[in-house]
Design a protein around this nucleic acid. Structure first.
Lengths: 340, 340
DNA sequence: AATTAGCACTCAATGGGGTTGAGTGCTAAC
DNA sequence: GTTAGCACTCAACCCCATTGAGTGCTAATT
């Protein structure tokens, strides 16, 4: 992979990203000054094709990058980009509105992402198990039902209907909540150790079962463990020329309706930080002609959720990566403030 | 409008609804035994066209019903239909799952509607102002913030962050909630009269402002006054041959993303009961080649929300009407049970 | 040995032209 | 009033020639 091959590949990727048309040797020679003739470029392209970085839709067409071509571009050729002042200002302005709950913050973030990228944005979180619980309350609802209200540090309020023994009085409920709050205030469910739990069980021996039920509800079962999902700009796929086919669009939109799929797309990798999945690298079936750029966001050093942008493999990776990184940072900042 | 014209119009509407192809005189003579020749039918069709009930996409094509054609069909020609036993069973089965909150009921209902109709279903409600409030609680959150938790008769739990004077203690909050509950339990916000309010103000004179704030939050401002929206089967428009155009599909899907639009579609008419809007009869711009069948659902004699089905003007009105009516009834039944 | 000009070749896309077939309106006969 | 007959219309389809962008190969040039 000599220097000139890199330049040719870079030219092909860049050109295809911006035009969506297969790019030919003449175009490269003309638009990107490599100082060589189209014939030479053709030779290079033949090599690149053999190496698997580019491919031809049909014999008499130009070349388009393959998944590995994009991968090489992303790993070795892409120049980092920074947001322009206007764009930064736009984000700042969108975040300037006072937001009380994390949910609102995430929804706005998803909107910003999709608007600025022109692709589809996905945000998942916060992970309940890791979200610190500020306060818990138990309200009597019926003779054998209570309402469990939990306020997390992110000001996310969750409600659960709780089955209780009919013998429990309002005072009992209050007592349970009081003890819970005094022992566990500010702890995430994931952090609750057996020790402190035993302590509570001792104090609330008669209500063991109720405490257990609360713990279970707050911990969330695995199915809903990924928290809420914000999705924005799903209809942006209509902008992409590669999705001018009704069935393709439909396929993607149907996938995006399923939270499990979103979860799969965003949490494909367990690692923290930025991740780029190109085309077939995605494990989720049906988005193999899409790329996904994801990142994680963190509060208090705890992984709180994932954000991501889904677009065609022909996406503007440089810009998208910058956007996702910036937004992950912004989220860290805004959420930290929200958490006081 | 003699008997035979009606028969011809009926044949055209029925045929077009099921085939989506313009229907010609020969087809009618063959498929629908009117005992006359195509030529005669052509004459009748010429009349019907003059009367505005049918139109020709182009000279050498058959006829398709116009909006007024559908209107006449719906008003005068359509035979009422009842659901088959299998379909009833399906609904029963879907509703048999235990559901705790109205939200869940409405979501399931929307799914049933869209699945059985193959169109898009919309459900709006419950109207908070009309939903009776079972219980209210105030939890201290910060020095100048409290969490207002309201449980409605439909078991819908709403949370609001409330600004309070820093001087208020936890005991104060409890007292406010206690007084509120004792006076207003089981009342909808819309029902609260000045008299009982004055009563409360007297008792809680020091906390007037807080009580007022609570009232405002619960009443909801006009913007959010329509409650929650459940939407299902939006992607069903991809099934319709008249929407094989990307831009059309996109247009509709974009509209459906806007809750204000949904509100406009569903609450176009103030009347209760069934309503059918055909094509251009819709006041909402952009759905003028769609028809909407809506109905209202009622709990305790109070209008609680709207349900509706959105499909192409070429929709199966007989079936859709039956579905919407049935679902409105079922909702009444299921919700009444939920409300105990 | 690398580069390039030249050339034959491929193939999607475009557009014209003929054919088909479903459907109509009109007229004259029944 | 109904119908058969007929000329006419027009979208849809297929066929085919043309175009043009692009390639690979080869031989000449540097």
């Amino acid at each position: 992979m000599d220097e000139r091959k890199k330049k040719v590949l870079l030219a092909i990727v860049k050109d295809f990203i911006s035009t969506a048309e297969p790019v030919g040797s003449r175009t490269i020679a003309r638009k990107y000054q490599l100082g060589v003739s189209p014939a030479t470029i053709r030779n290079e392209m033949a090599d690149l094709e053999e190496m698997g970085y580019i491919e031809q839709p049909h014999t008499s067409a130009g070349r388009i990058p393959s998944d590995s071509g994009y991968r090489y571009y992303v790993d070795c050729l892409m120049e980092k980009q920074t947001l322009g002042e206007a764009e930064k200002e736009y984000i700042r302005q969108r975040f300037s509105k006072k937001m009380r709950e994390i949910q609102e913050v995430l929804n706005v973030s998803a909107q910003i992402l999709s608007e600025m990228s022109n692709y589809t944005s996905l945000i998942m979180g916060p992970y309940q198990k890791r979200d610190r619980i500020k306060q818990v309350a138990l309200l009597p609802m019926a003779i054998d039902k209570a309402l469990l209200v939990a306020v997390s540090q992110s000001n996310l309020v969750s409600n659960y209907l709780l089955d209780i023994p009919p013998s429990l009085t309002e005072a009992d409920l209050e007592r349970i909540a009081r003890v819970w709050n005094s022992r566990l205030k500010g702890m995430a469910v994931a952090e609750i150790g057996q020790e402190v739990l035993d302590d509570i069980y001792k104090e609330l021996y008669a209500y063991r079962k109720v405490v257990q039920a609360i713990l279970e509800l707050l911990g969330g079962n695995e199915e809903q463990g990924y928290g809420h999902i914000s999705l924005s700009g799903a209809l942006n796929i209509f902008n992409q020329p590669e999705f001018k086919d009704l069935d393709k669009v439909r396929g993607i939109l149907e996938l995006l309706e399923d939270p499990e799929v979103i979860k799969g797309i965003l949490a494909d990798t367990p690692e923290e930080g930025l991740s780029i999945k190109i085309g077939g690298e995605n494990r989720v079936e049906g988005i193999n002609d899409c790329s996904v750029v994801t990142a994680t966001y963190v509060v208090d050093g705890e992984l709180m959720g994932h954000i991501g942008i889904l677009g065609p493999t022909r996406m503007d990776y440089a810009k998208t990566v910058t956007l996702v990184e910036t937004m992950a940072q912004q989220l860290r900042r805004v959420l930290a403030k929200l958490y006081e």
